[in-house]
Design a protein around this nucleic acid. Structure first.
Length: 498
RNA sequence: GGCCUUAUGGUCAAGGGGUUAAGACGCCACCCUCUCAAGGUGGAAUCACGAGUUCGAAUCUCGUUAAGGCUACCA
């Protein structure tokens, strides 16, 4: 029999990462078995209607490459795939249940609060036929409730969690059809999964508690229940150290947020595939096709998993580094908009520096902050590894200034000039590069070395910054300020420039 | 409160009676290096607790504790 799984989100306007993971597993399971993956929109809650929410779902699935075989946007043989369009179907089946004695009309007031915590008091469970007819003919609003057996037990076998048995008396007479005529999720999912021939229901484990009631419904209809594969919950760590279901307070939790921050769709999918599932091998980087190939229910983990942004960062960095440079460059464009204009022209080069240094595209902004954030801190010129103090740094800068002033600012020129000069002066390259890089960026961490930074800043700005650094150093050292344009170039430097 | 589920380092997790209890992220150190990354190498760090079964328990059983879920005319 062909495997058919479904992803049945309600259109909330955004795709929570936990939902995406459910979709992923349902997709992987179906595709692993050469089956069909169906999309069904669960919009039975009118109050929750959000404009454009179904588009978010379509787009997410498309971007993540979780292509469905049937759904509202592409049709299929089991439509309609939007629950609000299936109203009549649910009513028909609800009435069938009433007739067979597995459900009943309930005319109770919706807010007639039943004794707290013990569910509905079953007031209407045993109304006489006459009473029901009377209420109905008076047009009294009603809901239809499931008539759960008062004794005995109900058992189902979950593919992940195993056999689960509950006492029927712990189950309540849940509402099947609401006052507005629409079904509850609890009813609609049973009817639809059966009618759409779903063989494996893959969903979050918050539904385990409700599954016995669904089981009873299938039995009442005389239908064969689909197999269930419940998935653990993706959790987030709170500031106080506690853990709760991943939500906005933990950071970005929607697929779109993550995309906006500059995470790659493939990296996100890869990471969440390993949240609650393990491939029983040491492989961690998986393409979607590989996931399809290796996915197996045996690898599904029962316990909840905490979403770790650090590990997502690592996955994303892996994917970013693998991008061919052209793709990287294009994908990074939206993130350099806030950077000073000149960098835009040199992005071809600058992006090569960025690619191995960022975890996500939004990291580009702080990486290049030195372009506009230039606040000299003379203490940075002291560097013990290169055995440098402020005085030496100042002297080096003073000597290198005229050389730079007469050089064309291209990366190769700059780098050869600097390294040749260091060689000429018989100093370690770092001893020269450090003060130059600091002078020109005022940052200890920069996206590239001194040569690259000079090039990115351009001649004019570079010289201006070096001059300013020399001035600051002199002030600090209590020495007179120099006007670099008037400084005589020493013989040795003249000789070097040959 | 009742019911259901879960429990291996900080995190993802392998391991299902005998193991030096894998691997990855993160962290730390070192190497590389003009900084930071990237890349190397190495290191610290885990079986929630208590009984029981057994020659032997992270592994099986029971209990406790903790966490999560359900207990909606939400899904």
């Amino acid at each position: 029999m062909e495997v058919r799984t479904r992803f049945a989100p309600s259109p909330t306007g955004y795709m929570h990462i936990g939902n995406l993971r459910t979709a992923l597993f349902a997709f992987l399971f179906a595709k692993h078995h050469n089956g069909k993956f169906i999309l069904r929109i669960e919009d039975t809650d009118q109050k929750r209607y959000v404009e454009g929410a179904t588009e978010v779902i379509y787009n997410t699935l498309k971007i993540a490459h979780l292509n469905h075989d049937e759904g509202p946007d592409i049709g299929g043989n089991y439509g309609p795939y939007v629950q609000s369009e299936r109203k009549d179907i649910y009513q028909k089946y609800a009435k069938m249940l009433v007739e067979s004695g597995h459900a009943y009309y309930c005319f109770c007031d919706p807010d007639e609060k039943e004794e707290q915590g013990f569910g509905y008091n079953r007031h209407c469970r045993n109304l006489s036929k006459e009473e029901i007819e009377k209420n109905l003919s008076e047009g009294k609003p009603y809901v239809i409730r499931q008539k759960v057996p008062l004794s005995g037990t109900t058992t189902f076998v979950d593919e992940v969690y195993g056999t689960i048995t509950v006492e029927n008396e712990s189950l309540d007479d849940q509402v099947l059809l609401k006052r507005d005529g629409l079904p509850t999720y609890n009813f609609a999912n049973v009817v639809d999964d059966h009618l759409m021939n779903i063989t494996h229901v893959i969903r979050g484990k918050e539904y385990i508690s409700s599954t016995p009631k669904y089981q009873l419904l299938y039995e009442a209809f005389g239908w064969k229940p689909p197999k269930t594969i419940h998935l653990s919950t993706i959790m987030g760590r709170n500031e106080d150290g506690s853990v709760s279901k991943l939500s906005k307070r933990h950071g970005s939790v929607s697929f779109n947020n993550l995309l906006e921050e500059g995470y790659l769709s493939d990296a996100i999918v890869n990471y969440i595939s390993l949240l609650g599932w393990n491939p029983k091998s040491e492989q961690e980087i998986f393409s979607l096709d590989e996931l399809i190939k290796h996915f197996d229910v045996d690898g599904i983990v029962k316990s909840d998993a905490i979403f770790d942004y650090k590990k997502l960062d690592w996955f994303n960095a892996q994917y970013i580094q693998k991008l061919d440079h052209e793709t990287f460059k294009n994908a990074s464009m939206p993130y350099i908009k806030d950077l000073p204009k000149p960098i835009f022209d040199k992005w071809d080069f600058a992006s090569t520096l960025a690619q191995s240094r960022i975890n996500k595209f939004s990291d580009i902004v702080p990486l290049f902050a030195f372009l506009s954030d230039f606040k000299i801190d003379t203490s940075l010129f002291e560097n013990k590894k290169n055995k440098l103090d402020k005085l030496q740094s100042r002297d080096i800068l003073v000597k290198i200034f005229p050389l730079l002033a007469s050089t064309e600012f291209e990366v190769e020129n700059l780098n050869t000039l600097l390294s040749k000069y260091a060689e000429h002066k018989e100093m370690k390259i770092g001893k020269l590069m450090w003060p130059v890089r600091i002078a020109v960026t005022a940052h200890t961490v920069t996206p590239g070395g001194a040569g690259e930074m000079l090039y990115l800043l351009g001649k004019e700005e570079s010289l201006r910054r070096i001059h300013a650094s020399i001035d600051a150093l002199n002030v600090d050292l209590g020495e007179p300020l120099l006007d670099m344009k008037e400084q005589p170039i020493e013989e040795e430097e003249i000789e070097f420039m040959k």
